[in-house]
Structures are given as C-alpha cells and as structure tokens.
Design a protein around this nucleic acid. Structure first.
Length: 414
DNA sequence: AATAATATCAACCGCCCACGC
DNA sequence: GGCGTGGGCGGTTGATATTAT
C-alpha cells in the first residue's frame, strides 16, 4: 500500500535524484505549481512516482528550506517540542521554519537521542533515565521504542481531575523535563528564540506557544545581556521585540522605527496575565526582507516589570522550579478555571493544530486588532533564475527563509 | 594506507486518513 | 457502506561520509 498504483504502472526510477531530475522538478513546480502530485512526474518528464517527487520537493528542493546544521537554539527547541509533542515530527517541523520533518527526525535519531542519554535523560520519556527505568518496570507491558510522549488527546475534564495529583518535581508519576539543563546552556538569543516561536505560532491557543511563553519566565532580559544587540538596548525589554532572533543576530542593520513595548498577554485557557498590550513587533521574514507588524491592543502603557515576570511564572502551568510539568499536572488554578469553560470533549490535538477557537470570554475581552503588515515577501518563484538567485542568497547569508509567516498575536486586556 | 566501525541523511516503505465515486 | 485513489506522516533502510583502529 505504501507504493501507490502509479508506481507499478511503469518502470520508475528509485534511489538518489540526479541534478537533471532535480532541475526538471524545480522547473515544473516553479512554473506550474505541484497541483496533483501524481500528475507531476508525467508533466515534468520524470520517471518517478508522484510521491517521490513530493518528497524530493518538500525535503530538499523547496526554496524556503534552511540548509546546514542545526543551531543550538533549534536543538533546544526540538528537545522541548519533543517533550510536548512526541514523535510528531511534522508538527515539530511546523514550528521550526525552514526545517523539514525528515531533517528533524534524522537529527533527533542521530544526535539528540544520544546527547540526552549522555545527560542521563531518557529521550522517549524525557524523564531521568533511572526514573524512566522504574516506570518501565511498573508498566511492563509498554513496548520498547514507542514514543514516550503523553497522549495529548486528553479531555479537559481529565486534565482537571489529574491536577490534584502529582504536584511538584518529586512526583514519580509525572514526566519531567529538566529545563534547567537547557537553561544553563541557553544563550540570551536562545531565550529570544522561544518567544520567536510563540509569536509566530498560528494560534494563541496553541499550548506550545504557551509553553514557549512560559519558558520566558526564566528568561533574562536580553537588553541587560552582554550580547544585547545594537539598536535594541533602548528597548525596555527587547525580548518582546525580536520576532526572529536569528535575523537579529545576523542582520545588524535591523531596526524598529517605533519601539513601545510590553509583552502581549495571551488569550489562552492555560496562561493568564494582567499585562497590557501595546507592542510594535519588528519582524524579519524570509531572511531577506523585513516586515513591520504593528499590533495595537489597548494602548495603556506599561512595561515588563519584575511583578509581571513573577506573575507569568505563577501563571505558567508548564514549569515548576525549572522542571517541565506536563499539562495534566498543572498546578495553576486559573488554568483549571479556564479549562472548565472549554467543551469537555476538547482535544489537545485541536490546541496543537491551532484549530480550537478562542473562548468566547477571551474574545469578548480582546481588543480589536489593528494589524498593519508591510511585507516585501517575494511574489513567487516565477522562473529558475529567480530560484537560483534566492538559493544563492540563502546559502551566502546562511539565513533561512520562509515565503511568509503570519504573525498572529492576540492581545488581551484585563 | 587499509580496514572496520560509526554517523549522517536522502529516500523508500507501510500505514492512515480524507475524499470522491 | 465499500472501494479506489492521493496526500501525508512516521519508521526504517541503505548508500555515503567520516572517524577510529
């Protein structure tokens, strides 16, 4: 079944792709788009099956791919996302612009797994190895090699009922992820990167976004860091301004015409803050263009102060003393209350897909968004020359690109 | 220098799901 | 509802590159 019927109809090539084949495929897709993958090989004059073409395009030929080795930030993010999502490589890849699920999967299997084991962490469960061993002994029926991720399709009611149990890192039944280990290793840029993931997430209801934001409660202020970037030192908290830390890192001419800052609060069932909303987010997109996205919520000014930070820490249900808490063990009362408002049959997958709508209560509190996005995104890759030019730019700049990233930040007024 | 061991990663395989008939 | 088909995902394989002996 893995091979589709089209693959049997004619003798098709297998194995590595030749440059000629690549060129044919690129030419065809840049000109016509892929449309129906099964018809692509015929139209492009390739002796491959549609599936193979699709794979080649997605994993290798796509112009928005970021090539090269994974950065430390990406590595950390993959580990953290894996702790939440398990082996859902496509979902992890969706949060790593320019990376493919295959690439991440390979990187995980070849590098991260080994690294975690060396650190004494079970890569499947993200528990300390000793603890994971005990867990295995208890549940002797569990199969080896399966992902240790929790079942994310947990109804809210179950989430709530499990909240009373296993609070704190000492709990043996609670999967933990030692964020301190990552934190110790993480650079200030790493911390910005987590915000990056939060801001670029498609939905503010996304638990991974919340996860990333929660991570920020540990973050130090980038502006106070030795590695603070030129032009950002004036920012009360540049943490909230860097859409893409890698771009900031590599494009020193990055600028924000107006800087007013305070962290956007998050209309999510899990995280609630009382922070105010007025932010101008300077966003770098595509590695070559900048987009200024102006989000205006309630413009009552406030800055990211220590009280806010504390509040964030308190309202984060994902961390406790630097240990990653799984959602089912959230100690946060607010989160419980919020969750109760959601339908009982709410599935985690809906959160993960960003498909679950904002709660009515949250929506009513939200100010209308004024979103002014100026973008110079490429209009498309109309011919091969354009594509090669972009490839060259990408390669020379070592900056990943993406056709377009929607910035979706909801500001909640409290 | 030759060989073995190990790491990396592109590509394939097998399965699931959605959709149309 | 059953069937065929295509798209997509995660697991696995195998070729190649790199490192160790």
């Amino acid at each position: 079944m893995g091979r589709h019927t089209c693959c049997y109809k004619q003798k098709l090539r297998k194995g590595l792709w030749s440059p000629e084949e690549d060129e044919k495929l690129i030419k065809h897709i840049t000109k016509y788009g892929h449309g129906c993958w099964s018809s692509v090989p015929k139209q492009a004059g390739l002796q491959r099956c549609g599936k193979s073409c699709r794979l080649r395009w997605i994993n290798y030929l796509r112009p928005d791919l970021k090539r090269g080795s994974f950065s430390e930030q990406e590595e950390n993010l993959i580990i953290e996302l894996h702790a939440v999502l398990g082996n859902r490589w496509s979902q992890i890849a969706a949060r790593l612009p320019g990376r493919t699920d295959n690439e991440i999967k390979n990187f995980w299997n070849s590098c991260i797994k080994k690294m975690l084991k060396q650190r004494g962490i079970d890569p499947n469960t993200h528990k300390p190895l000793a603890e994971a061993k005990v867990g295995e002994d208890k549940a002797s029926g569990t199969s080896e090699g399966t992902s240790g991720s929790v079942d994310l399709k947990v109804p809210a009611a179950e989430l709530e009922s499990s909240n009373d149990a296993a609070r704190g890192p000492a709990s043996s039944s609670m999967p933990v992820f030692d964020t301190c280990a990552v934190e110790r290793k993480a650079s200030p840029m790493t911390k910005c990167f987590f915000l990056d993931q939060f801001i670029t997430s498609q939905s503010s209801s996304d638990p991974v976004s919340v996860f990333s934001l929660a991570h920020l409660s540990f973050a130090t202020d980038c502006s106070s860091s030795e590695t603070a970037l030129p032009g950002l030192s004036a920012c009360p908290n540049p943490l909230w301004l860097s859409h893409n830390s890698r771009l900031l890192e590599m494009n020193r001419d990055f600028h924000c015409s107006t800087i007013s800052t305070c962290p956007p609060s998050v209309p999510t069932p899990i995280l609630s803050t009382s922070m105010d909303n007025s932010a101008q987010i300077c966003a770098g997109i595509d590695g070559m263009q900048y987009s200024d996205a102006v989000y205006s919520g309630n413009s009552r000014q406030s800055s990211m102060n220590s009280a806010d930070t504390v509040e964030m820490q308190n309202s984060s249900s994902f961390f406790h003393n630097g240990i990653f808490l799984w959602p089912e063990s959230t100690p946060d009362k607010d989160a419980q209350v919020q969750l109760e408002k959601e339908p009982e049959d709410l599935k985690w997958s809906q959160y993960l897909d960003g498909a679950f709508p904002m709660s009515a209560a949250t929506q009513s509190q939200s100010q209308p968004l004024h979103c002014d996005v100026k973008t110079e995104s490429p209009s498309g890759f109309s011919d091969l020359v354009t594509w090669h030019q972009i490839q060259q730019q990408l390669q020379s700049s070592d900056i990943y690109g993406k056709d377009f990233q929607m910035l979706s930040v909801g500001f909640e007024q409290v």
